[in-house]
Design a protein around this nucleic acid. Sequence first.
DNA 1: TTGTAAGCGTTATCAT
DNA 2: ATGATAACGCTTACAA
Lengths: 361, 361
Amino acid sequence: MATRKDKQAEETEVQAATGKAALVGLRQVATTANVSTATVSRAINTPHLVSPKLRERINEAIDRLGWVPDGTARALATKRSSTIGAVFPTLTHGDFARATTAMQQELQERGYTLLLACSDYDVEQEFQQIKKFIERGVDGLVLVGENHHPELAKLLARRNVPTINTFVYSPETHGSCIGPDNRKLFFDMTKYLIDMGHQVFAVVAQSVENNDRAEARLQGIQDALAEEGIAVRPQHFAIGQWSISEGRHLFHRVMTTQPRPTAVICGNPSLAVGAYLESLAMGLKVPDDVSIVGYDDIEVMSHLPVSLTTVRVQSEQVGRNAARYLVGRLEGEDVEIPFQCDTEIVIRESSGPPPAGQSTD
Amino acid sequence: MATRKDKQAEETEVQAATGKAALVGLRQVATTANVSTATVSRAINTPHLVSPKLRERINEAIDRLGWVPDGTARALATKRSSTIGAVFPTLTHGDFARATTAMQQELQERGYTLLLACSDYDVEQEFQQIKKFIERGVDGLVLVGENHHPELAKLLARRNVPTINTFVYSPETHGSCIGPDNRKLFFDMTKYLIDMGHQVFAVVAQSVENNDRAEARLQGIQDALAEEGIAVRPQHFAIGQWSISEGRHLFHRVMTTQPRPTAVICGNPSLAVGAYLESLAMGLKVPDDVSIVGYDDIEVMSHLPVSLTTVRVQSEQVGRNAARYLVGRLEGEDVEIPFQCDTEIVIRESSGPPPAGQSTD
DNA sequence: TTGTAAGCGTTATCAT
DNA sequence: ATGATAACGCTTACAA
């Protein structure tokens, strides 16, 4: 007791001397409540180990002093930061934004905080951001896709940071992933179009550079077509940016070639909307002249004059379960993984049989 | 020197005993490079204070051991976390997503990391999230709007956390804000419609609950109208959610009242797109039968069959400058504040003079 | 149930 | 230019 009082007196003197109001810390709370620092720590971390009497006194002191515990000190002492880092390619695409929101919410409910960075589809940048996150002491990592920096695996292993790859599902190649089976999704979509009689397909998609999801989707299309002995002709294969204007541009391009495609498969929602809007501008009838299908069900798709057939991916589910998995692992629960998220091909008005006379070749 | 070697030996023994490979720390690097911990610290933080010779040796050791500095320890020692917290209402609205992306990028360039949370337009939740961030030791805070928890100011003052309110500009009431002048924006937009002869206005907007930006925009409309002695009739005032389907719904409602509005002002891009799409469904001609204007220039607006007049806000600028301001303050530079971001009324095809015979009353 | 005191991995103040 | 060492604010054996 004497020691504690002396310490406090000393501190007060120092404050007076420096004129600098030392921020209240756990120590101040302890002195005020007349207990040891250990007891205060217990009172907030394991309350059941502290007598109600003291707990009361301590809480009073905390309120009075307005103490906010120092997370960095706690992290240093416990070697746990209760922090999860996520590196996404961008936030301006609806699926990632939705996943991030859901993830953050789930993390928060479990007492974790989200660190966020955007790699802009750049592996090198992603690696730097991950390194930074590890420096910051994140307890886990959420990434997108499976193509990362060659050094990454080593780094993660050395620091033993649990990681989950999102928006992919390929259990045969990797362990912890969660998302749709991109290849299968587009395989099925293509199959659906084939079954309606389409033979001449065009693909309007974004660059697959550093984007294994987009690549897998392309593969799905090709695989389905290959089963029928068809292939996308070079002039029907249009790769560009992620934007509506690009969608218009590329759609226009593929639709002014010979033979004219009867089905246009778009790799993302902006391209699909762009394609449809261009069809309007070109005076084409959808789906009578041409079928258009997309990826990711953004709201506008179902409200256009001709609603768009597309693939719906439960991005919220991806984000939420990524968080759940990581936190679960950290807390010692065992969570099922890999996890394939719900997907659905939403058939709307923009897809139908090919124009008569072109359904066979 | 003897001391150092002893310590290392001791540690090695412990490792062998526990079988637990202690993670390499600055101390290991020091021993390996045969220098003191202080020198290692200097070598990475203030390299110019260390002789090239030692610097070299130290870097070698770092590489060999694959040392990653511990940010939490550093934060504890320096009382700076190089971390900024941002609490946004949501990420699924384009403007916030864009701002977040730009902010994160700017922070990263300055060596800071972003903590992110979404309050879902809930003041209480926002407050809890901010508290959490302060516990985590953020050096600064980015918030949206000016309406926060009553306790917030006190908390921020006590912990002395620099904060900036974004997406608002009202220097007369508060200090650090950055964004558009929401009231003026809609004042001007309304003025523009008035000048074309419109007299019967409808408003389709989202709820203003916990959203001072939306409220200010509404105020702008009313102020402009008041100057002409007009007011929005109750049946022309439609408040709802943020979605395209809601926009359709509300547009339909206001357009089936008497007198029929000649101009519909929408409070956000989804509502505007919904309104336009519903006008198509209703067989209304835009802008001949009715003018539609919106807020925030999302890409689809310029590509619809009738392109939409709207307000463009440089959200990236908001995010980027919020980061700049905070970091600047922390680094002792002085940054101009408040900052009004660039805005522009983008006049497209969806707005024009009112139908003949209705331009005067 | 409560207290004592030794860390946690850095930085920063002194000396040298 | 470099080294010894005391913080930083908390947690957690170990004691009592």
